[in-house]
């Protein structure tokens, strides 16, 4: 799948600023507000940027607007006000016919999985590739390998209804990452899986991040956030109130492997993280 917009799409976007695939930003929110119908705003004056190759957690209490913010990024909803830019393009100005091209650059792990119940696990993972027009023979082995990696190698032909919550979660993650998207969004991706598998999934995200994928993970799992040592965007009552870069607690942290936890350090050439927060608040 091409990572660049088609010429037609690029022309239609009328991008205000050119999107540099090496610096981004991949996502930029400026004074974004969002409401459902006539209800009060669930997101208020949200502004931030996600540079290319960055890795962020999105935290906040239930109802803070985490899922709504993700929905704006994966183009399930529109902002009520403000500007949302994806890959350098103002989504309000992108022609509707070109939105699918933007969506294909984003992998999403939905909170409620959103697996297709009538398709076996293998076909669920193949879905984004089918939509992108890939021939089955070109991705069959890749999917088998990916499913094996997430621990579903023995359940490739299983129907989602027969899988446990954790298995469904891993299946949803496999589907989200199978295209090696430029931007990966995950809404509580470790909500239903055990700590060991949570860590494995996190390693996958980190690995994808190292390969250039920008990652944003909404989670309640403060333990995971703390151990990953990645910057945090915190939402509270619809406002992005602080940024933080958590570091794993040194003494009690179990061994999560060389990529994570205390040993994890950003790559030397990792781009500078940029923020555009109103009232930033650092956190140790």
């Amino acid at each position: 799948m091409s990572r660049q917009p088609t010429p037609r799409a690029a022309a239609a976007y009328g991008a205000e600023e050119a999107f540099d695939p090496t610096t981004g930003p991949v996502v930029r929110f400026q004074n974004v507000g969002m409401r459902y119908g006539r209800a009060p705003e669930v997101l208020k004056d949200v502004g931030f940027t996600l540079p290319v190759g960055s890795f962020h957690f999105l935290t906040g209490p239930s109802g803070a607007g985490k899922s709504s913010l993700l929905k704006l990024i994966y183009l399930a909803n529109r902002a009520s006000r403000g500007t949302v830019q994806l890959f350098g393009h103002d989504v309000e100005r992108v022609a509707r016919a070109d939105l699918p091209y933007l969506r294909r650059r984003i992998g999403v792990v939905f909170q409620e999985y959103r697996l297709l119940d009538h398709l076996p696990a293998f076909d669920n993972v193949a879905l984004p590739l089918r939509i992108a027009g890939r021939k089955p023979q070109t991705y069959r082995d890749d999917i088998a390998e990916l499913l094996t990696w997430v621990g579903l190698g023995h359940k490739m032909q299983a129907m989602p209804a027969t899988l446990s919550g954790g298995e469904k979660q891993r299946l949803a993650i496999a589907r989200a990452v199978v295209t090696q998207p430029e931007l990966l969004l995950a809404d509580e991706p470790t909500g239903n899986i055990d700590p060991e598998m949570s860590l494995k999934i996190l390693r996958l995200f980190v690995e994808l991040n190292r390969m250039g994928t920008t990652v944003l993970i909404a989670t309640h799992d403060q333990d995971l956030v703390g151990r990953a040592g990645m910057p945090v965007l915190h939402l509270n009552e619809g406002r992005l109130s602080r940024k933080a870069t958590r570091r794993a607690p040194e003494p009690a942290a179990p061994d999560y492997g060389p990529e994570l936890g205390p040993e994890y350090e950003p790559e030397p050439d990792e781009p500078e993280l940029g923020y555009d927060l109103g009232d930033e608040e650092g956190e140790a």
Binding site: F122, E145, L147
Partner: peptide, 8 residues
């Protein structure tokens, strides 16, 4: 790594 359940 077992691919035994993989489709043919």
């Amino acid at each position: 790594m077992s691919l035994s359940d993989a489709p043919g």
